[in-house]
Amino acid sequence: MTKFTKRTPALIGRRGFLGAAGAVAAAAGTGGLFAPGRALAQEFPSRNIDIIIPTGEGGGADRDARAFASVWGNHLPTNFQFGYYPGAAGQVGYEFYMSREPDAHSLIFANLGPEVIMLALQDTGISVGEDIVYIQQTLSEPMAVWVGPSSPFRTLEELVEEGRRRPLTVAVSRLPHPASIGMLALGEALGIEIVLVPYGGGNPTAMAAITLEVDCAALPVTNSIVLDDQSLVLGIFADENVAPDGTDNAPTVNAALGTSIPALTSSRAWGIHRAAYDAYPERVTRLKESMAATLADPAYVEAVEGAGVPSVFIDPGDEAQAMASAQATIEMARRYRDLLTGS
């Protein structure tokens, strides 16, 4: 089960609150005011780091980026500003990010699985490697298929059995997503019809499964872990279930059904403009060093667990590893192009 850090027992006092309010107001206001003053110092970062999140606030990317930034500040002394740009399966966020000044002060916090698939399938003009480089991987989690607490299906076998009688409806966040690919591959392997129903985000997808609007949901496994007893994980698209406690000790899909579906994971990674990568190598090095230091900091493990994510999903990977994850996802997207684009 998920571990939560204990809430501070005592309330902060009135003075504390008003003091904090004043400090935050001053920080918010002077964040802009004092920025050029810092720029004169010729240091990096000379202003706040802008973190672009190509999904909405309150989602998994937001949760993980904030957990990272809460510790990153100890290793890269600056403020982090979050901006949310959801839309068109992440395309809006990526295109907006590409329009930002490529000076290494703007970074994108990517969910490699769905977003790289989107870049591969949609006409964005943005190419992984040529326009954007993922410089540090932070977390990796497998995809999972799960049901709500009142679902009639208690095991993956029962779900598949029903699938042999009628098409199975599967709530997914969006079509270009590793979880969607996992379900399509499962359907292909067992000869059952899978109807993917995209709800446009993790939260509405979860709600559809809990309220039994659909037969099951397929999402990154953390979504179901965070939901705790509101979800029952039936199977994991991985070679091994590394977080059995939070996932109802669910089997892997391949072990339960005798299939050989490749492991489907999605990794969180920090991305940067290729132009910034080439023009400011010393800044990129500084970013990489501070990111690596953050990942090695025990406080990061605490922050991740505090956000409800099992620390076993922390998966530090350098640029080579992050780019290899992205490349593998591109290959997978090409294989299922027709089903994912409706063409």
């Binding site: 802009g32 005011l33 004092f34 920025a35 050029p36 003053g37 004169l40």
Partner: peptide, 10 residues
């Protein structure tokens, strides 16, 4: 204007 204020406050 904002730049000027920044300079003064800095």
């Amino acid at each position: 204007f904002e730049a000027l204020v920044n300079m003064v406050t800095s």
